[in-house]
Design a protein around this nucleic acid. Sequence first.
DNA 1: AACGTAGGTTAGTTTATGCTAACTTTAAAG
DNA 2: CTTTAAAGTTAGCATAAACTAACCTACGTT
Lengths: 150, 150
Amino acid sequence: MITLGLDNLKMVCGIKMKIHESAENYLESILMLSKSGNPVRSVDIANELEYSKPSVSVAMKNLREGGYINVDADGYITLTESGNKIAQDIYERHTLISDWLMFLGVSRANAVQDACKMEHAMSDESYTALRKHFDVLKLEMYKPKKAKNI
Amino acid sequence: MITLGLDNLKMVCGIKMKIHESAENYLESILMLSKSGNPVRSVDIANELEYSKPSVSVAMKNLREGGYINVDADGYITLTESGNKIAQDIYERHTLISDWLMFLGVSRANAVQDACKMEHAMSDESYTALRKHFDVLKLEMYKPKKAKNI
DNA sequence: AACGTAGGTTAGTTTATGCTAACTTTAAAG
DNA sequence: CTTTAAAGTTAGCATAAACTAACCTACGTT
C-alpha cells in the first residue's frame, strides 16, 4: 500500500509546489544577504534569521528541490529565476509595509516585525491598494495645504 | 523518564498558556455567532469556519481547559471574561482592518479574508496607529476641501 | 601527523493544527 | 420499540516548521 501526500503527488505530476510562509521568508533572507555583496551560505541565513543550522539545511534542501535556489559545490546559494521573483515580491512588500507603518508613527522595531508577518497576509489586491494609497499620502505630505500663505 | 513540553510545564505551574492564532479565531467566531442571538454550539462553529466537527471539538476542549470558554451540559458555549477580552479585541481588529481595506477600494471578499490574517499579525502599536490614521482619513473624507465653494 | 573549528547533514523529537474513521449519546419519527 | 439523524468525542494520521544530538568533511595550525 502506497500513500502519497498532496505535495508528493504534485511533485510527481510536475505541478508547482505551493510555497509556504517560511519558504518566502528564507528566499527574502537570501535576497537581503545577497544585496550586501557577499556570497550567501547556509550558516549566514541561520545567523540572520536566528535559526539552527539543521533547520536552515533542511529548508535549503526543500528550496533546492523546489527549484527556487541553486547551491554550488562550495555551498554558496543563489536564487533561481522563480526564487528571485518571489523574493523580490516579498522584499518589496516588506519594505513598503514597514515604511508605511513608520510613516504612521510606529517604531522601527515594531514596524519591521509586523511587516514580516503582514507581507504574507495580504492579497495582491490589498497590497496594491496600500501601495497606491501610500503614494498619495507621501505626495500630500509634501504638498503645502494653503499655497497663498507661502 | 518523563518529558514535559513547555506548555505542560506551564499548565502544571499555573502560568497562563500562550494563545495561538487558531485559538483567537475560534474565540472571535464564538463572539460573532453569539451576536446573532442564538446559543452557540460546537457544530455551529464548525459550519462557520468550515472545519470538521472533531477539529472544533478538540479546539473547544483546549479553550475550556485554558479558561477561555464555558460549555454547559447542553453543549452551549459561552466566553469567559478572559476569552471575551481576546475575542472582542480580535473582532474589533477584524472589523477595522476590513473596513479600512474596503475604504482603500479592496473588494469585500479580499478585505475580509486579508483582515482575518492581518488581525493576528499586527502589534498593538501598529494597530493603534492604523486606527488613528483611519479615523483621520474618514474625517477628511467628509470635510469639504474648499469651504468657500459651497 | 594530530587536532580543533567551521560548515553542513541526518535522524529523531516537538508542537500546532488540520483531517478521517469510528464510536457514543440523545432525541425525534415511524 | 426500533430506527435514524444530529451532536459530540476519541483515536490515530498528516503536514509544516522549528529544535537537539550526533555525525561527516575539510581546512588551518601547531
